[in-house]
Design a protein around this nucleic acid. Sequence first.
DNA 1: GTGCGGGGCGCG
DNA 2: AAAGCGCGCCCCGCAC
Length: 590
Amino acid sequence: MKSYLIGKRDAQRRGEKFVVISHNALFDMCLLAWRFGIVPDLMIDTMGIARAKVNAFTGSVSLASVAKHLGIGVKGDTIGKVIGMRKADIKSAGLWDAYARYACNDGDLCREIWKRFRKDFPPQELLVMDMVLRAAITPRFKLNQDLLAVHLNTVKAAKQDLLARTGIMSKDDLMSNDKFADALRALGVEPETKTSPTTGKATYAFAKTDAFMASLDEHPNPDVQALVAARLGFKSTLEETRTQRLLTISQLTWPGNLGSGWMPIPLKYSGAHTHRLSGDWQLNMQNLGRGSPLRSSLEAPDGYVVVVADASQIEARLVAWQAGQDDLVASFARNEDIYSNFAGQHVYHRPVNKKDHPKERFVGKQAILGLGYGMGKPKFYTKVKSDSRLQLGEEIDLGIEGAGAVVDGYRKGFAQIPKAWKTLDALIPQMAHGDPRAMFGPCEVRHQEVILPNGLSLYYPKLTQEVTPRGGQWVFRNGKRIKFLWGGTFLENLTQALARVCNFEAALRLRKEFPRFRMAHQVHDELIYVVPGRLEFEQLHNGKTKTHVFGPAREFRDALIAFLSTPPAWGPAIPLAAEGDVGLNYGDAK
DNA sequence: GTGCGGGGCGCG
DNA sequence: AAAGCGCGCCCCGCAC
């Protein structure tokens, strides 16, 4: 550490940039920044690199597994002998030299990983990694402690209320499937079952999305209604536990002159197979409830505002473009109401518009957003039924055959998309056994690997055909998970990966053109920044409020939307679009 | 007591 | 011919 500090000072004197590389930088750099007050100019995480390059093969990115996989050495085990000991204890136990050798070996292994990947890891992706690390290491959000405290009480009280309405039920009776089933039987309701897709065994149909639970919601016996409401309320524990956690974080005392109430956003670089980010530190900040006070609790500090923008229907747009469904691409490019158009032309065969036909348009929306990856009619039927109930507040029951008609309408209306599944289907055996070097749009299909336009790859290790009763099924191993692959899922993987590439191309451009403003958070198709600015609110005659933005935030918001709408160089005809907003907190800006 | 898989649920 | 997918966390139930 001492040599580092001296090195940093020397480098700064020479006007040089300072780079620090470590394995698990998210942890190490937080120590460096929060304990020692030092934030390197560039942070490189060999664990992040390993997640992108090695995890698909090993299922683990610990220093030990990566070193073993690359054949660069063996991680020591001295740490296990000294854990919990102080320096004097380690010395008196005669372990000091061994511990020093162990620590140096860790450093050597990290250096070897970096040497192995430095030549072919895309330089731009190192900048992405640095942006992602900074969301946690130099937090830009402040937590609203009062709001969190009130919300926690509200959530707890709501649960107590649900429990009270059931009479005698306890939390255990609600949470356990068997006990909840008994409770239903006691009220004269025989619980329905469904077949588990994973085990093939029968299991209770107790999910929020199950039709059985929806039917009980309208049961004549109010006790049954209360029981079901309580079960569903208690099953969603996420809101309560996470509010508690954010509240605890908001009460932390930060070292030095950092003040208090900061919220680091921990994100795993390349956490997903498709290189999307994922959550970390037992905290998933990418799935905060829409409209939840948790979003509003993330505030910009005084003098700053939250700027948010998201790429509109980016996956559906990428699907249309990759498949060569030119009419759909053109409609997206003109920013037409695709959902209404599809519902009118291919489902209902009469004009549909947003204002007069919300249900028809909802079906169109579900189709455009969901049917590009090969979903079949049974799944589409249940999805529309359940999503309409939860999102629209009114259940749409298409009937299995009605759902089938929508699926057929999609596949016939956009015939190039099922054709793309077939094209990809045909590539799978080639990718398994050989090295086809075929292009699918901007992606190059190689042996058990697809090279993306940003230089990263999607990996399909151990891609083989498994014989099942239904015929040959292609499977691959992603780390420890076994996954099926066919044209539809393949297109989904490619699309998700390309959307991720587009999103960070915009973020990289912002980093270059607005170097002082750094990414605060990222949620797949959405970029979030906290930048200097000021808001004024104007009351309109119709009761709505119009927000006026002043200061740097204004120009930044326009650039953010413009960059997310700009097609990448590898796909100049992709019809991208974006919308964005500014607020005093994440909830308002969204 | 701990580890693990399945189901459930939140987001995209 | 048919097949949406990508995460993380919570809890239960079961194996050890």
